[in-house]
Design a protein around this nucleic acid. Structure first.
Lengths: 352, 352
DNA sequence: TTGATTTATTGGAACGTTCCATTTAGTAGC
DNA sequence: GCTACTAAATGGAACGTTCCAATAAATCAA
C-alpha cells in the first residue's frame, strides 16, 4: 500500500483502468460518470491512499474553499468565541476557516495576512490588531479580495464592519448605574488608540449628560484591558479626594480586576461600590458576586460575519453593509444602589 | 494599477524586462542575480501588485511552509495558550501555523485534518478530540506526514506525544492534601474516555495508597470538565453519608465550579473544604480564594511541540521521542487543613 | 588572440489538477 | 442499416511556479 511518492490522479486512473479526466470528474462528484465506474474509481482512491492536491486544483479553479480568520488575541475567550461562531457557519457551507493569531502585533499581522493571501484564500475576516496602520489592507483591497472586520474597526476604512453596538451598550449600562442612584461615575480601562474605546466611552458620556451628571462628577481612568489593569484603575479612583461610587469597565477582565481590588480593600462589590462589565464572557455569570455586564453575543457576531463573507464571495463583491449587533444589559449582583445617598435616588427597580 | 486578472511572474518579467526565471530567482532571494536587476524586479513586483501563488510553487517544491494545528477546544484558555506557545516558535522559523478548531467533535476533526492535508501542510500538531477513533490518523501516517500529539494522547498510537506529567501532578496535589491532614478525599470531574483522566486519577490513587489512605476513604465522582460539572460533583459528594473534606479536581474549571457550589452552601473553600485544581490557568491566581493548582506550563509545552515538529520536518522522519513536561504544585489559598481532625494531623506546613 | 572559467540570465519541462472539445459507445427513430 | 441523438469517457492545453541544462557575456590565464 501507499508508495513513497504521493499518488496522483494518474495513479488512480491506472489502478482503475480509466483516464485521469474520469478520475477528476469523480472527485468533483460529477453526475456524468456511470455509477459503477465511479465506485471503481473511489475504490482505487482508497487503495492507493490518495490525497487531493488543492493547490494544483486552485491553479485552474476560480476560487478556493478556504477563508482566513485573523484574530488579535486568541487567549481572550471573547475573541475565541467569535472564531467559534464563524466556524459554525463556514463548516455547513463546506468552507474551511484557518485561524491565525496576531497577538495584538501589527507586524505579525502583516505576515499572517501575506501568508494567507499567498495561500489563495477566498476571503478574510479580521479583528485587527491594536496599532494597525491605515494602509495595512491596501494591498488586499487592490487585490480585490473580500475582507470584513469583526469586533473592531479601523479609523478611516471602507471595509465592512461587524461589531456590537458599543455606544448603546455603554449608554445602557451607565443609565442603569445612574438609575440606581449613583452620582459620581467612573469609566475604567482601555486606551484611546482603539476605536472601540471611543465608542464605549462615548456611550458613557452621553448617558451622563442626558441624565444630568455633570462633567465634574465623571471620571475616566485609562488602563490595560486586563484584570491587572482593572486593579490599577480601582486603586487610582479610590485614591481621589471625592471617589466615585460606581464604575463602567471597558471589558469584563477589567471589571474582574476592579472587583478583586475592592475585596482586597475590604469593600464588597455591588454593595460598597457598583461595577458593570462589558462583553459578558461566560465567567461573568459565575463570578462572586455575579457580574452585571453588557452582553454582545460574540458567537452571534461571528456567525453574522461569516454570512456576510459568504455573500460577498458569492456575489463577487468587496462591498457590504456594516452590521451593528444588538446588545443588552444583563443585570446581576455587582451593582447595587449608592449606599450613602440611597434616599435621594428616585430609583428604578432598587433591590440592594 | 493592479489589473483585474491577478499578476503572475510573467507580468513582472515583462514589466522589468527580464525573464520569468529571473523573477523566480529574485522571489527566492537567490544570490545569483545582480543586485541592480533584483531591485528592478522588486520594483516591478510592487508596481503590479503581485501576490505570490504558493499553491503553484508547492507543485514543484518539496515542502510547504505551513503546518496545521488542530485544537479540540479553542474557547478553553488552556488550549489557546498551547496554540500561542507554538506560534511563537514557528514564527521565528518562518513557518505559518494555521489553527483549526474541532470543538471536541471527531467528525469535524476528520474534515479539518483532510482539509489541512489537501492544503499540503508540512506537518500537524494535534490535540485530539475526545472520542477520536484509533484509526483516525492512519491515512496521515501512511502519507508519511509528521504528526505530534499535544496535551492528549490516543490509547494505542505510535505518534509522539508532548504532554504534562499528569500522574505526578495529581500525585503531588493529593499528597499535599493528605499532608494537610485530610483523610477523606475525592476526585472530581472528567470521564474515562480520556487518557488524561486515567493518568490524573492514577496519580491521585497512588498518593492515597502510598500515604495510607484506604480505598474506603477515597471517592471518585465523574462529571463534565466544566464549571457546571464541578458544581454537580460537589453536590454529589456532600450528599454522602460521610462526606470528604478535600477534592482534587480534574481541571481548574471543575475546581471553580466546586468552589462556587461550596459558597452557595455557605461553606468557605479552603477553610471548610479543600480544593485543588489542575492546569493553573491564569484565572486561578486571581480567584477568590486563589486556587491551589497544578501548573503545567501549556505555552511551554506548545513551544516544545513546535520544536519537535520542526526537527521532524528537518530530518524527514515521522518518529520522535515523547516529551513529558515537568509540573509543579502552586499552593495558594484554596486548601487549608481538615478542621475537624486538625489535632490528628502531623501537618507539613500548616497555616490555615 | 584563444580557450577556459566565472557570472548572470534564460527557455523548456515538469508539477497535479480542471476544463473544453472531441471521440467512442450505445440507443432510438425511421 | 442508416442517421441523429444521448451518455460516458477521453486527450490535450492551461494554470503559475521551480528547477535544470543551456546560453550569453564578462573576465582571466596563457
Amino acid at each position: 500500500m501507499a508508495n513513497r511518492a504521493k499518488a496522483t490522479i494518474f495513479d488512480i486512473a491506472r489502478e482503475a483502468g480509466v483516464s485521469k479526466s474520469t478520475v477528476s470528474l469523480v472527485l468533483q462528484g460529477s453526475g456524468l460518470i456511470r455509477p459503477e465506474t465511479a465506485s471503481k474509481v473511489r475504490k482505487a482512491i482508497e487503495d492507493v491512499g490518495y490525497v487531493y492536491n488543492r493547490g494544483a486544483a486552485n491553479l485552474r479553479k476560480a476560487h478556493s474553499n478556504v477563508i482566513g480568520m485573523v484574530i488579535n488575541d486568541l487567549t481572550n475567550p471573547f475573541f475565541a468565541e467569535l472564531a467559534v461562531g464563524m466556524e459554525r457557519v463556514f463548516q455547513s457551507a463546506g468552507i474551511v476557516p484557518f485561524i491565525a493569531n496576531t497577538a495584538e502585533n501589527p507586524v505579525r499581522q502583516e505576515e499572517v495576512l501575506k501568508s494567507l493571501m499567498e495561500q489563495g484564500v477566498a476571503g478574510l475576516i479580521v479583528s485587527p490588531a491594536r496599532g494597525t496602520t491605515p494602509g495595512a489592507f491596501r494591498r488586499i483591497e487592490t487585490a480585490g479580495l473580500p475582507v470584513v472586520f469583526a469586533m473592531r474597526r479601523l479609523p478611516e476604512s471602507r471595509i465592512p464592519v461587524i461589531a456590537p453596538d458599543n455606544h448603546r451598550g455603554a449608554y445602557l449600562a451607565t443609565a442603569h448605574l445612574i438609575g440606581k442612584g449613583h452620582r459620581r461615575l467612573v469609566f475604567f480601562g482601555g486606551s484611546s488608540d482603539l476605536v472601540v474605546y471611543h465608542e464605549r466611552l462615548g456611550g458613557f458620556r452621553e448617558a451622563c449628560e442626558t441624565q444630568g451628571i455633570s462633567d465634574r462628577d465623571t471620571l475616566v481612568v485609562e488602563g490595560e484591558t486586563s484584570r491587572r489593569g482593572g486593579i490599577a484603575c480601582l486603586e487610582t479612583a479610590l485614591a481621589m479626594a471625592e471617589p466615585p461610587t460606581a464604575a463602567l469597565c471597558f471589558n469584563d477582565a477589567v471589571a474582574f480586576g476592579a472587583m478583586l481590588a475592592l475585596r482586597k480593600r475590604g469593600l464588597e462589590p455591588g454593595v460598597d461600590f457598583a461595577i458593570v462589565g462589558f462583553d459578558d464572557v461566560a465567567e461573568a455569570e459565575h463570578y462572586m458576586p455575579a457580574l452585571t455586564s453588557v452582553a454582545v453575543d460574540s458567537a452571534g457576531l461571528g456567525e453574522r460575519a461569516a454570512h456576510v463573507m459568504l455573500k460577498m464571495i458569492q456575489s463577487r463583491t468587496t462591498r457590504a453593509e456594516d452590521h451593528i449587533g444588538a446588545v443588552n444589559l444583563v443585570v446581576r449582583e455587582s451593582c447595587g444602589p449608592d449606599r450613602r445617598i440611597r434616599n435621594r435616588a428616585a430609583g428604578s427597580g432598587g433591590a440592594a
